[in-house]
Design a binder for these strands. Structure first.
Lengths: 195, 195
DNA sequence: CCGATTTCGGAACGGATGTTACCGTAACGT
DNA sequence: ACGTTACGGTAACATCCGTTCCGAAATCGG
């Protein structure tokens, strides 16, 4: 990494390195040295950008949320109908290609790391609740005449379905290929009357 | 741990200690010493029972699968109807009480550990595929007149829903209490015409 | 162009980790 | 009762970890 005064760009590079290590080597090998190597710098730079390892992870976690939020909002804007928006937003959270599969692995890594980290678990809960609010809003838009409790239950079921599919596809892509995940999502949307 | 010649019981005690540490301290603190402390013994015993740390984790992973398999078969036997069996079996895989919530956390820990461990990921895939076969069988029994593809898709959706609910409830039990998870499962079963 | 200041590499340190070797001791056969 | 054996605790080892520190290099102000 060449010398640069753009600190936020460095934070992003390092966060990407965190994702890289998490996706390819797992949480157990997510060391400051491994992140530095993946970013092409030394531990010195990492520890000058972040006060400690936990802050590095927390920043990477936040940037992951911000990145997916931006992608989701873009998908939502591009969608023609509310039902298309709901489907597209749920689909991007599953393991349907190498990109989303790696994100699912990274997601799991952060979740496992959050067990022993108050700030990480708080961050996860904040983000996941905002994710839930979004899915509920999209579900309500896709079924405008539903009462709120029905919307909430269906939204929760769809969230859980996508999350589970992401985990399955991430851990065993051969057994849960993209096509099956898509068919499953469409079957769920159809079953709930949202497709 | 008092001296005992029952090696398999020790293996079970140590595996339980692995689950304990995984549930309360997370994968990052899952060290041989932490396991020994949780089991009330020293590292010496641990390393006499298992050739290395990986073998310890693998054994604990296998025992977890065996334990849940036994519980699931018991639930299946006790159920009055195929639909009750399907519902009960799915429900035990979610985070509806402290017991199952901890299991979900442990499950995630093993999954995160499997990223960097060939044997663990192979074990996970084996177990998860057998789990899938079971849910498909239960779904077929609950809807005898469905064609196989429909059974497979619905079973996958239900598995994913339960898995996602387990993850949500494990990470944020306040936001995803047992009642909401049960309502969600029942809504999904109803939507698929299996309740 | 030069001194001051920031930025970063890289060595170093204390501590933790997986693993090994060793030693006391309880259990067991004779 | 006694020697053997297996078992488990203890300590040590090499390595790796997060973090600190200092010097060098780059950048900036004049």
């Amino acid at each position: 990494m060449s010398r640069s005064s753009d600190r936020s760009a460095q934070g992003e590079t390092l966060s990407r390195a965190v994702w890289d290590v998490l996706a390819t080597q797992g949480l157990e090998r997510l060391t400051v040295r491994a992140v530095a190597t993946a970013a092409g710098c030394t531990t010195g730079l990492v520890m000058h950008r972040f006060p400690n390892r936990r802050a590095l992870l927390l920043h990477a976690r936040r940037l992951l949320h911000e990145t997916t939020r931006a992608r989701v909002e873009s998908l939502e804007a591009e969608a023609g109908t509310p039902r298309d928006a709901l489907r597209a937003v749920l689909l991007q959270g599953m393991s349907t290609d190498e990109q989303t599969r790696q994100e699912a692995i990274v997601w799991m890594g952060f979740l496992a790391a959050a067990v022993a980290d108050d700030e990480l678990i708080a961050e996860h809960r904040r983000n996941n609740r905002s994710w839930r609010t979004r899915v509920e809003r999209l579900t309500a838009a896709a079924a405008p005449d539903w009462p709120a409790p029905r919307v909430a239950t269906a939204a929760l079921a769809l969230m859980a379905t996508a999350e589970g599919a992401a985990a399955f596809g991430a851990a065993d892509p051969a057994a849960f290929p993209a096509r099956q995940q898509v068919e499953m999502l469409d079957a769920a949307l159809t079953a709930f009357g949202l497709f």
